[in-house]
Simulated assay, not measured.
Amino acid sequence: MGLEKQILFFFSALGAFNGFLLAAYFVFFSKKKNSDYFLGGLLFVISVRITKSIFLFFNDKIFDIFIQIGLSACLLIGVFLYFYIKASSDNDSKKIENKNKSTYWWIHVLLWLICISIFNYFYSYSENRLLWNYFVKMIYLQWFVYILLSAWELRNELKKLFTKNTKLSESQIWQVNIFFGVLCIWTAYVFGSYASYIVGALSFSFVFYILGLFWFLKRSNSTEVKNKISKDQQLHNLESNKEKATPKPIEKYANKKIDEQEANQLKTRIERIIAEEELFRDPNLKLPDLAEKINVLPHYLSQFLNDNLNKSFPLYINEHRIEAAKKLLLLNDSYTLEAIGYECGFNSKSTFFSTFKKITNYTPDSYKKKYKK
């Protein structure tokens, strides 16, 4: 194998290898959400298909069963893409609908597994290569149908790409990027055969590292913001310590209440970012996390909540969690009360019940019985 082919093999194989590692991470080590499982499954079946392409390109004497497995994996790529998009939806009402529908994902997976198993059993690749050529075209058609279904699920997000005054949330950006990545890989396999068979594998590596670069740059920007906030916080603490060292007693934020116009603008920004990214669903959300999102110092946000809204940060976030819980209680009958609590950001059933009673004067069950009518 010449140097040119060695380089080609390295970059194409590296993408497939990293795809397997990332698939294992999402399945076994992530936050255990449905969207993570679907994304892990998507990466796995794509990596299987890519691996088959790589070895077939560089060694056309590989076992036929290996080719058969690689082609069969394509039947699940579109399925996992579609259900990943559905499970990672941002919209509240859409999320409720998606979770009810996404419970049927196993029917899709089982149906296609049965079909491919029957076909593999009666028509092996080694003895029916001509038939498999037609079958592969059907597989690519099925893959494309699920891409269209995924595009329909993403129709609102795709519209935002061409609208100047609207922005995509972080999770929506990932959905759109992964969608176009899979579309790129499908295009490479369908039309790449006119150029070179390895185009599909290289396209996956290209998409994989573009997404990795996007994630790295985002993390770098996030770290810079956190470092800036940390430095500003240290300066603020030094100034506060100097003030505390003087004998004159002072009050917290004395005479520094944020004026009404500025407070209203800040409140609008906070409400918008919380609604768009559903930050309250994170049970580990802290005040500095929200401050970073709206690009203000933590002590400034604390001042606004305490002096202008007369609320602590935990109470403010819990009110948003309770509002989301109310919607689930009235709109969805398939969730248990405990599941609703976890879905809305509470880390235990007891905390959810006590907070709900404190804010609404009802238990979740009594609230549902009264207002469901």
Rank of each mutant, 00 (worst) to 15 (best):
Gly2Val: 08
Leu8Ala: 14
Gly15Ala: 06
Val27Trp: 06
Phe29His: 14
Ser30Leu: 01
Lys32Asp: 12
Val45Trp: 08
Val48Lys: 05
Lys52Thr: 10
Lys61Val: 07
Ile62Leu: 09
Gln68Thr: 09
Gln68Ile: 12
Cys74Val: 13
Leu81Gln: 08
Ile85Thr: 03
Lys86His: 07
Ala87Asp: 14
Ser89Glu: 08
Phe122Thr: 04
Ser124Asn: 12
Asn128Val: 09
Val136Pro: 05
Met138Asp: 05
Leu141Pro: 02
Phe144Cys: 04
Val145Met: 03
Ser150Gln: 03
Arg155Asp: 02
Lys159Trp: 00
Phe162Gln: 01
Thr166Asp: 06
Leu168Thr: 05
Glu170Val: 10
Glu170Thr: 12
Asn177Arg: 14
Asn177Pro: 03
Phe180Ile: 00
Ile185Val: 15
Trp186His: 06
Trp186Val: 01
Tyr189Gly: 03
Phe191Leu: 15
Ala195Met: 11
Tyr197Phe: 09
Lys228Pro: 04
Ile229Phe: 03
Gln234Phe: 13
Leu235Val: 06
Asn237Thr: 05
Glu239Asn: 11
Ser240Tyr: 11
Thr246Val: 10
Pro249Ser: 05
Ala254Trp: 14
Ile258Trp: 05
Asp259Arg: 03
Glu260Asn: 12
Gln265Tyr: 09
Thr268Gly: 07
Ile270Asp: 04
Glu276Arg: 14
Leu279Gly: 07
Pro283Arg: 12
Asn284Tyr: 11
Lys286Trp: 07
Leu290His: 04
Val296Thr: 10
Leu301Gly: 10
Leu309Pro: 06
Leu309Ile: 04
Leu315Ile: 13
Glu319Asn: 13
Lys357Trp: 03
Thr363Glu: 06
Lys370His: 09
